[in-house]
Amino acid sequence: MELAEFSISIGLAAIAGLFIGIEREITGKSAGLKTNALVALGACVFILLSLQFKGDEFVDITRVMGQVVTGIGFIGAGTILQHGKNVKGLTTAATIWCSAGAGGLAALQMYAELLIVCLTIVAINLLFGFIERKLLAKNKKNHEENQN
């Protein structure tokens, strides 16, 4: 792989992770800009490394992608916490998992797809985060009215 291609792939992976992490950072959630950028970058680097063995005998380069998914699952699991009946961190874990996917797209030079995925992730987190806050506020209001 040429150094220019490598640089473009890892650069776009990091930018994608930063873009994905913006919403998490703005809303004060864990795993913001740096975490998502590093997850996307790391996934990209490992997949780029595996691509160097493409065509070699007895080598299955797709196994690296499976291992990236598994490894990111462990990172995501670390963000999930249970507080009584409430579970927190599921969206953060899912966002980290999606950032790794974005890194994989960058590694495979699927740049149009990378853009679509990044926009979709951010739109889901922003739009449904807004809807979730509205629903929670409404439920809290209804609960308080029922207490009185």
Score class of each variant (00 low, 15 high):
K88Y: 09
K54Y: 11
I116D: 08
L81I: 15
F53A: 14
W97V: 07
I96F: 09
Y111E: 01
V59E: 08
V69L: 07
V45N: 07
V45K: 10
F53D: 01
L33T: 00
G71S: 04
L115K: 10
L51W: 07
G76I: 05
A102W: 10
Q109Y: 10
A102Q: 02
G21P: 12
G28R: 15
G101M: 09
K29F: 06
H83F: 11
T92H: 12
E23I: 09
I121H: 03
E132V: 07
G17M: 10
G101T: 10
T120C: 13
I72C: 04
V68T: 04
D56V: 06
G76P: 06
G42C: 13
M65L: 01
N36W: 03
S50E: 09
G55Q: 05
G55L: 04
V39C: 00
G101A: 14
K54C: 04
A93D: 01
T79R: 01
I61F: 07
A112I: 13
I61L: 11
F19G: 09
L81R: 13
A43Q: 04
G73A: 06
A100P: 03
L90D: 13
L51H: 14
Q109I: 01
V87I: 15
A100D: 02
K34C: 14
G89A: 11
F130L: 15
A112C: 11
F19S: 02
F19T: 08
I72S: 07
N125S: 10
V45G: 05
L114D: 03
G55S: 01
S30V: 12
I22A: 00
D56A: 14
A40G: 05
R63P: 06
V117T: 08
W97F: 14
T95Y: 02
I20E: 01
F128S: 08
L105A: 09
T62S: 13
L119G: 13
F74Y: 08
I15F: 14
I15C: 08
Q67P: 02
I72L: 00
L114P: 11
G76A: 02
I15A: 15
L41K: 06
G101Q: 01
F74W: 08
T35I: 10
A16W: 03
A123C: 08
T95R: 03
I96H: 02
A123R: 00
L18C: 13
Q52P: 09
G28E: 15
F53V: 07
G129N: 14
G78V: 04
G17W: 00
Q67M: 05
K88D: 12
K88T: 14
K88M: 03
L127D: 04
